[in-house]
Design a protein around this nucleic acid. Sequence first.
DNA 1: TTTTTAATGTTATTAAATAAAAAGTGTTAA
DNA 2: TTAACACTTTTTATTTAATAACATTAAAAA
Lengths: 152, 152
Amino acid sequence: MNKQQLTKTLSKAQVMCSQSGSRLTEKRQRILELLLISEIPLSAYDVTDAYNRSSETAMPPMSVYRILDFLESEQLVHKLSSTNKYIACSHITCSHSHDVPQFLICGECQNVKEIAISKNIIDELSCQVSNAGYTLIRPQLELDCLCQSCAA
Amino acid sequence: MNKQQLTKTLSKAQVMCSQSGSRLTEKRQRILELLLISEIPLSAYDVTDAYNRSSETAMPPMSVYRILDFLESEQLVHKLSSTNKYIACSHITCSHSHDVPQFLICGECQNVKEIAISKNIIDELSCQVSNAGYTLIRPQLELDCLCQSCAA
DNA sequence: TTTTTAATGTTATTAAATAAAAAGTGTTAA
DNA sequence: TTAACACTTTTTATTTAATAACATTAAAAA
């Protein structure tokens, strides 16, 4: 992500937060920025290290966890439950409302692509789940994949 | 799972192991048994505790991890990557070959149902993943659900 | 300004996973 | 039988991940 996009995304994030009555403080913004810059998902401790390398004052993991939770609640960041890592939402600058995100995770280079799976498939899936007597709550899929360059 | 089923499953597991040239030792069998008995997925530490409560000699977590890895490699046990917990395969006594397992995880009571999603859906999914430039490697889905009794 | 809510810091603890090397166990072939 | 080997388990240590409880600071609202 280039500098211009970054600036645009961060200011959009600002707007989103104030709309929801919360504040994107300097530290929160900085951590979001670190995730936006990163090519790969980061663990809470990865984020902590990145933050501390780039800042004079050290932030403890505890605070990072809290901030990640906050960013997640604002839908600015997603947590991959299969790997316990965090990535910035790819659709912050989009205006349309967000579906439940789906993730393609490259098992080689850790690259993650956030995509929208067609409603069709989700519906079918939901249907089969119902047949099994269960109710689908949150159809977030995290799929083990290879990305284009790693598959080659 | 009742006692009869359990015995049958364990002896089938024995056969599977010897067919693959490995051994289902007493400890390995005991840990598989603990998972078969459990209604809910267990973490490696849960398994350790359960084992140690039921045995005179204590087994360290380290050994449990290794045994769980072994059981996983024999397809007797599955690891849920979203929760880092383990469950016994529901199809040990089946004769047909196993597809990649799909799991419905109840967010309330932790109950897990292992199902087969229709090849149809997997294919469509795989297709959409291809469109995004990725290759689906291992279509194991872990879906956040509510089970029948918790949904009521 | 005060007060009160939100955000962050501090300290400590628990849980989860892995690493490396030693010791035990069973199998096989000389 | 036993020496050699492969496999299994134990031991000890360390690293990584996540949470808990309470103190402090900063910002917004009354």
